[in-house]
């Protein structure tokens, strides 16, 4: 497996605050990779270091096979971090022409028009950026990250400020970048449902450290539970407490049992023998939000997480 980004012991301190605390992370080439974490987890600091905007206090990072600051390697990467800003007197088309020039490319009208089309800005191509909404700036930011046709693109909150159809379009675009164009996409978002839908793998950061990393399917399947709609609930909980292979807890008007799948018939039999009426028994996977909450130990979810 080849990696587009590798960090080892990456640390960044701002005074007494450790924004990154010995982060070691390897991001494989291909697919869409999500970087998750609550506010202050270190996501933006990580991206800023990878882009060479700031220097780490300790540790090292390798991007596209070169050290951070290696321009030849950095030129194979595109990025959009935080809310994108552009010179207000330029049109969207001119912004892409300008960034093409910065990259040593000629302002190829077809390429510029193609990316404006793909991000949904074809009709606004010749409008000045100063009149753009936040959602339009996000779209232009994504086009700006992609205009040089990089092998790796980092997108920080790409759907921020977009309406639901826009979010859906962006999700489709991100998947197509990975699947059609073969671009490795690294995505940071608070929209956990979006991340779950679009990412192949995720890393969860908390307080500057990596707390969990893996394929989305692995992370969610590892949290599978058996959801039981039963009567009476108290009897069900008693049965579960007495079993060695299972445990249970109350979740609203249902009981959630933790056990391995092969033990399911035995559990159901035990419940029936104890006189419990079972209306429904259904395996449910943990969603990414549950994994995120568990791993980050968040007591209160940020509002943006609820929105996802």
């Amino acid at each position: 497996m080849t990696f587009v980004i590798e960090t080892r012991g990456l640390t960044k301190t701002y005074g007494s605050v450790r924004a990154l605390d010995g982060l070691s992370l390897s991001i494989p080439r291909g697919g869409v990779y999500g970087v998750l974490g609550p506010n202050g987890a270190g996501k933006s600091t990580l991206f800023r270091i990878l882009l060479g905007l700031i220097r780490p206090t300790a540790g090292e990072a390798v991007v596209m096979g070169g050290a951070v600051g290696d321009v030849a390697a950095s030129r194979r990467m595109g990025s959009m971090i935080e809310t994108p800003r552009f010179p207000p007197f330029m049109t969207a088309r001119q912004v892409l022409g300008w960034l093409s020039a910065a990259h040593g490319l000629k302002a190829d009208a077809a390429r510029v028009s193609g990316w404006l089309e793909r991000v949904g800005l074809a009709e606004a191509a010749d409008r000045k950026v100063r009149g753009f909404s936040v959602g339009m700036l996000q779209r232009l930011g994504v086009a700006a990250a992609l205009i040089t046709e990089p092998e790796l693109v980092i997108l920080d909150e790409p759907t921020s400020g977009m309406d639901p159809p826009g979010i859906q379009e962006m999700r489709a675009l991100i998947r197509s970048l990975a699947e059609r164009d073969g671009i490795t996409v690294i995505l940071a978002s608070h929209q956990l449902l979006e991340v779950q839908r679009v990412c192949d793998r995720v890393a969860i950061l908390n307080r500057g450290r990596l707390v969990r990393e893996g394929a989305v399917s692995e992370l969610t399947s590892s949290g599978e539970r058996l959801r039981l709609s039963v009567t009476p609930i108290s009897k069900t909980l008693e049965v579960l407490a007495a079993l060695s292979y299972a445990s249970g807890s109350l979740d609203g008007d249902a009981v959630v049992a933790t056990l391995s799948r092969p033990e399911t018939p035995a559990l159901l039999r035990a419940l029936v023998e104890a006189g419990v009426d079972i209306d429904e028994a259904r395996w449910v996977g943990a969603d990414l939000e549950a994994v995120f909450m568990t791993e980050t130990g968040s007591v209160q979810m940020p509002e943006s997480i609820h929105a996802g």
């Binding site: 905007l53 321009v71 950095s74 990025s79 971090i81």
Partner: peptide
């Protein structure tokens, strides 16, 4: 200009 328009992040990795 790049400080005013916050555009260093767009160009600084390219050179």
């Amino acid at each position: 200009g790049d400080y005013r328009w916050e555009t260093w992040r767009l160009t600084s990795a390219r050179n």
